[in-house]
Computed example of a mutant assay.
Amino acid sequence: MRFKDVFSIIGPGMIGPSSSHTAGAVRIGRAARHLFGGMPLQAELTLYGSFAETYEGHGTDLALAAGLLDYATDDERIRNALSLAKALGMELTFNAARDPTVHPNSVLLTLRSENREDSFMGASIGGGNAEMTKINGFDVKFSVHNPTLLVFHADRLGMLAAFTSLIEAEWLNISYMDVNRKSRAGDALTVIQTDERLSGKLPDRIRAIEGVRRVASMNLS
């Protein structure tokens, strides 16, 4: 990857020991929590590659739990995140798996509440940076560091124009957009990232568009 600044190399302010295995993992957990819409009741975490091999020694389990609790990378509570999650009623399970096709610092988070289950795969790509690579069976690739909208919708004519017109009306600049679909004229997921922070009203306005089934948003920075 191309580094944009010195913090891309040395990592963010963080509770260590590792920018990749700790700070990046916190950000993956936070992104999943925000896109899920809050703290899950249950979280099944499947770790791959070096995450699977060293997650207890490098504190990746603590970091993922902390992210799901919405802690920042430098929050002192990261050290006690597992016990704090349990006290708040979040049930966590950790599994190790092998898959040579995914990034070696990857984790699949299956989050459950009383009425919903979502799956998020994320990868820690170095220097505390992280990206999401799969959501509910859709292949995606976007950074967790930018304001993000996920729009689950029917794959039909005019959907993108409807989304972008509402975003333009909010005076937001789209920095990234990608459409993923499982089949033609079937279910689709559009990922939209903006340069500016998303307003609280925008997801509701997009949700009101005919054919939109669900909208999730993330503002981590």
Rank of each mutant, 00 (worst) to 15 (best):
L109S: 09
F152V: 09
V212C: 13
G89Y: 13
A25N: 06
F3A: 11
A216D: 08
T148N: 10
N105A: 15
D61L: 01
R207G: 05
K134A: 15
F36W: 07
L47Y: 00
S124P: 04
E76K: 15
N146H: 14
R207F: 08
I28F: 02
F142Q: 11
R33C: 04
S143T: 15
D99I: 09
V6S: 07
A66S: 11
G11E: 13
L198A: 03
L92I: 02
D195P: 04
R181L: 07
V212Q: 07
R184Q: 09
L160W: 13
L198F: 03
E210C: 01
N80V: 05
S143I: 08
L166I: 13
L189Q: 00
R213D: 12
R33S: 10
A154I: 05
Q42A: 05
L92P: 00
R184E: 12
A66G: 11
P104R: 02
A52S: 00
L172I: 10
R156S: 11
L45K: 00
S106R: 06
D187G: 01
V107Y: 05
D118W: 13
T46Y: 08
G158I: 03
F51S: 02
H145C: 07
L64F: 02
A43E: 01
D74K: 07
R27D: 02
L64P: 01
K182P: 04
S124C: 07
R116K: 15
I192A: 02
V212S: 04
N80D: 15
F138I: 11
I192P: 02
V107F: 09
G57I: 00
P100F: 06
F120R: 09
A123T: 09
L172S: 03
S183D: 07
L82W: 03
L108P: 08
N219A: 02
F36L: 12
N129D: 14
D99A: 12
L111K: 07
T93S: 14
F120K: 06
V107S: 12
L69R: 11
F120M: 09
R77Y: 06
G128A: 13
A97C: 10
K201F: 09
A85F: 06
L160M: 11
A72M: 11
S143P: 13
L35V: 06
R33W: 01
A130Q: 05
Q42D: 08
F3Q: 07
T73G: 15
E168A: 15
A52P: 04
P104T: 03
D70P: 05
A161D: 11
R79V: 14
I206D: 04
I10V: 14
M1W: 12
